[in-house]
Amino acid sequence: MMLSHESVFTDFTTANAAHLDIFCPGQSSYTHVLDGEIVSIGRSEECTLEIPLSNVSYEHAQIARKKEEYIIEDLNSTNGTFVNNVRVSRCILHNHDHIRIGAATIEFIQNRTRSKA
């Protein structure tokens, strides 16, 4: 018996959940859920993720979502933004990438699933 095309092909959605696990000296580790808004990272109190360390620039980096991808961009910081120990200007993030900003480390976690609505 042939399955109905509607049951096989319709009502699928792709969920693209992602979050950051932040480990900053002097702070308890915490999680920030990425909801599609731009996440700014730096020493400034205005930043989404405030990292109060002397080797972090006021506006150090940002993470933005573009289509299905999360992209980290260094904002001309003094000491650089590193992904898996490589100093980057910009980088598409993948699951379990380790970001280093000053003495803080941030792990990017992504769970992309395609499922029935």
């Binding site: 992209i71 260094d74 490589v86 980057v88 200007s89 598409i92």
Partner: peptide, 24 residues
């Protein structure tokens, strides 16, 4: 390879190129 060349004097940075990576 990263561990090997990072521990040398002077160190050399070695990485595997990946799509979507921009270096300055």
């Amino acid at each position: 390879y990263g561990a090997k060349y990072h521990s040398m004097t002077p160190p050399m940075e070695i990485f595997w190129a990946r799509e979507g990576l921009t270096l300055a």
